[in-house]
Design a protein around this nucleic acid. Structure first.
Length: 584
DNA sequence: CAATTAATAT
DNA sequence: TATATTAATT
């Protein structure tokens, strides 16, 4: 950093410990966002960065400041001038190493870039690790030049080269030195703050999850793998690791479901089974089918979607007030389709039952018998009560639970575990994601689905036999396994009808330690940085998504995002709840 | 060796 | 808790 003094010629003293530092990089991209991101990342690398949004401008700068840059990183697709063209000019006129970049990794293009003289071709999203060593191109070029000139003091570069080589050799080693600041990649830092360089945590929104599920369905459970999913999802900034992690969670979720189903079945399930098969108990299974069917719809269409929601909402309200939805529903095998969390759907289907079930289940342990069959609404009340305490504490206000409910489910109070994780909802839209994919799923799993097979079958689909058992055991003991249930209350107020005052709130569910909680999600993806920055990020959730959401919620959400880690959530809960309650 | 999965850390 | 990261497998 200090030595920006280096001349283009270079690192006059390659040996300098700070060698790569100060590398003068010119970044050309018509996308301002990328310009900023790259700038930050490059600066992180201690490079001296100059950015420009136009290829022509870049050319101008390069011509103007001959020897003013050491390397150029240019996007391929730019309005004013084709990146390749720029590449040609640069190669011709200043002979600087040029790194091309684009979102498109099509071989032909990459080849074109290389043929035109690009020293490297990076695919967006670009990560720190890809930028960290770009100086090698500069060095290489210089060495080559020196060689061409019959130079013999290449030694001068050798050391540097060695250094670089070491780095290149083992990614791990690098950390030893200089890596502290940037740690791993900060590809995530898409928005802002490279400085903070903390990695952003991927927030699996409904939307994301839907894509995930869709991908899974397309691929087929048996064949799924993080990489495949990642590819199908088409979310550039996601990493295989992210997907793997989510997949792990998803599987866990499925496992748990399976387990529950089984348990249920074994339990009282028997009697109800028939009945359950459909709505109630069996939620799991059939859902898929249903969902699939539905899925196709437009959820996304903002308004329409909202309307639907609203409508449904009403119904929901009546029907299900609080529903616990299993968070990962979308994913469920059954739901193959991708309905992600639809609160409604989920709620209605799974939700009630499920939650019920779950609760009961827990409860059972605890002691209560569970009235499992209960119809939809019953559950709610309880939840509230049980949870109430928490909420109250949280925001001090106590709410009455939704009207309704008569049943009280004995929940284990000993474990006040519920927590609320709430996010704004946009679910509706998200909810019924797409669908089409199912086919594959069905194909693959068809058996299960078709059958309606009870849980087991479903489960099987997902998990290798070997695992199953294991899982079972595990599950049983793992309270934590459960995903959260979400309950969304959507209400539409006549008055405000048009807008639909839709509120969706996550609500909670209680369960004995494990079972669930309400969660909800919101739509888009955002990443949260542990630290602080990223707030700015996505405002974009906004409009539509938020449309129905009360401001406070929204804020809350945002807040939430900011501090993903800690569990500020609690504090929020109250709020959310309140709203939900109020609404109701 | 790359991808996946399990385990563990944050 | 959800997600990341690392370790272990495949």
């Amino acid at each position: 950093m200090a030595n920006s003094s280096k001349t283009s010629a270079g690192f006059s003293s390659p040996r300098s410990d700070t060698f790569p530092a100060g590398l003068r990089v010119l970044v050309v991209d018509d996308d301002v966002t990328w310009l900023k991101i790259l700038e930050k990342m490059l600066k992180k690398c201690s490079y001296e960065v100059t950015t420009c949004g136009l290829a022509r401008e870049a050319l101008y700068l390069l011509r103007e400041r001959k020897d003013g840059f050491d390397i150029v990183i240019s996007d391929v697709n730019m309005p004013d001038m084709d990146g390749f063209k720029l590449l040609e000019y640069v190669g011709l006129e200043m002979d600087l190493p040029v790194i091309m970049m684009s979102v498109d990794g099509e071989t032909s293009r990459v080849m074109k870039g290389v043929q035109h003289g690009a020293c490297d071709y990076l695919l967006k999203p670009i990560r720190m690790k890809e930028l960290r060593n770009i100086w090698q191109h500069v060095l290489r070029k210089k060495m080559q030049e020196a060689r061409d000139a019959g130079n013999n003091d290449l030694d001068q570069y050798d050391e540097v080269w060695m250094l670089g080589g070491a780095e290149l050799l083992s990614g791990k080693k690098r950390k030893d030195f200089e890596n502290k600041d940037d740690e791993k990649e900060m590809s995530d830092s898409r928005f802002g703050d490279p400085s903070s360089m903390k990695k952003a945590r991927v927030f699996w929104t409904v939307d994301l999850h839907q894509k995930f599920v869709k991908a899974v369905n397309q691929i087929g459970f048996d064949k799924v793998g993080p990489k495949k999913i990642l590819d199908l999802m088409g979310v550039p900034w996601l990493t295989r690791e992210n997907v793997a992690s989510h997949l792990q969670k998803y599987r866990l979720y499925l496992t748990r479901l399976q387990k529950e189903d089984e348990a249920k079945a074994s339990f009282c399930g028997m009697k109800h089974q028939d009945v359950s098969s459909k709505e109630t108990s069996s939620l799991t299974l059939q859902n898929p089918v249903d969902v699939c069917t539905d899925v196709a719809n437009d959820k996304y269409g903002g308004v329409s979607g909202d309307k639907e929601i609203a409508q449904n909402g009403k119904s929901n309200i009546c029907e299900n007030k609080v529903k616990g939805v299993v968070s990962m529903p979308a994913a469920e095998p059954r739901s193959v389709v991708g309905d992600s969390f639809d609160s409604q759907t989920a709620g209605s289907k799974i939700g009630l039952n499920d939650s019920f079930r779950l609760v009961n289940t827990d409860v059972k342990n605890a002691k209560v018998p569970a009235p499992y069959c209960s119809t939809g609404e019953a559950p709610q009340p309880q939840y509230k009560q049980d949870f109430k305490p928490h909420f109250q504490s949280a925001n001090g206000s106590s709410h009455q639970p939704l009207p309704v409910v008569s049943h009280q489910i004995p929940v284990d109070r000993t474990q006040p575990t519920c927590f609320l994780n709430h996010v704004p909802s946009r679910e509706e839209s998200d909810r019924y994601p797409d669908t089409d994919n199912k086919p594959s799923y069905f194909k693959n799993k068809s058996e299960g689905v078709g059958k309606f097979s009870p849980i087991q079958s479903t489960a099987n689909l997902f998990q290798p036999v070997s695992h199953q058992q294991t899982n079972f055991h595990t599950l049983e003991q793992m309270p934590s396994t459960t995903w959260c249930a979400t309950s969304h209350n959507v209400v539409s107020h006549p008055q405000s009808s048009q807008g639909n005052l839709t509120l969706r709130s996550g609500s909670i569910v209680a369960s004995l330690g494990e079972d669930m909680c309400g969660a909800s999600i919101q739509g888009e993806c955002f990443l949260a940085n542990n630290g602080l920055q990223n707030i700015e990020q996505f405002d974009y959730n906004d409009p539509q998504s938020i449309s129905g959401v009360p401001t406070c919620l929204y804020d809350t959400l945002r807040f939430d995002h900011e501090y993903p880690y800690p569990y500020p959530i609690d504090s929020l809960e109250g709020i959310v709840m309140d709203q939900g309650l109020f609404i109701v």
